[in-house]
Amino acid sequence: MGLLSDEELARDLGLGQAAALEALVRRYHEPLLGYLFRLLRDRSVAEDLVQETLIHLCRGARQYRYPSSFRPWLYGIATNLCRDYWKSAHHRHSLATLTFDAPEALVPATDLRSRVEDLAAWQETRAEVEAAVSALPGAYREVLVLRFYQDLSIKEIAETLLLPEGTVKWRLFESLRKLRKNLEGLAMDGGLPAGERKSRTGRGPTR
């Protein structure tokens, strides 16, 4: 017997089944934290918003209409909460003083076993990519994170953000272009992060 789909679990949650809530939380705690963290760059706030997203999910479960897609609904809640946070006075106040989680805490466990030099290079590249992604305007960052980190389809992203698919595609492509520009701006010698400069096709960056 296979696992229940997200949609089936959401339906069961609406019917008041506690097991459905547990299954959904165990399935989506990490993806939601990753999504919100990449949008906010602040683990504490991301954790709070994960909690609030799931509270909203519980509250709205009765209104869920099976079998409509679950992930756009869930990420839509998270995105709206995130946008509310961006608008908040607290966020504006904290922008200038934002501190980041220590990179070592975010390195995949497998890399901890590798050599120190590899670890340092990983952290350097990670910091560069994080800075480049974070420098994207919110609208572009949302689609980029949803597509490349949360693995949502174009259709799901469109449903999540309530946008036409064409707009999502255009924003996605533009986000990559902007990201490339940001990465080139970060690397003084005009390339991508250190680890990836060699992987390019041998031509210089275009501007």
């Binding site: 990490e30 934290l33 990753g34 963290f37 990449r38 683990r43 989680d101 805490a105 975010l106 390195v107 995949p108 990983w122 590249t125 990670r126 990519v129 994080e130 992604v133 490349f148 980190y149 990465l183 991508l192 992060p193 680890g195 990836e196």
Partner: peptide
């Protein structure tokens, strides 16, 4: 390079 941007678990 995108996968390099890991998130906390």
């Amino acid at each position: 390079v995108l996968p390099r941007y890991t998130a906390p678990r």
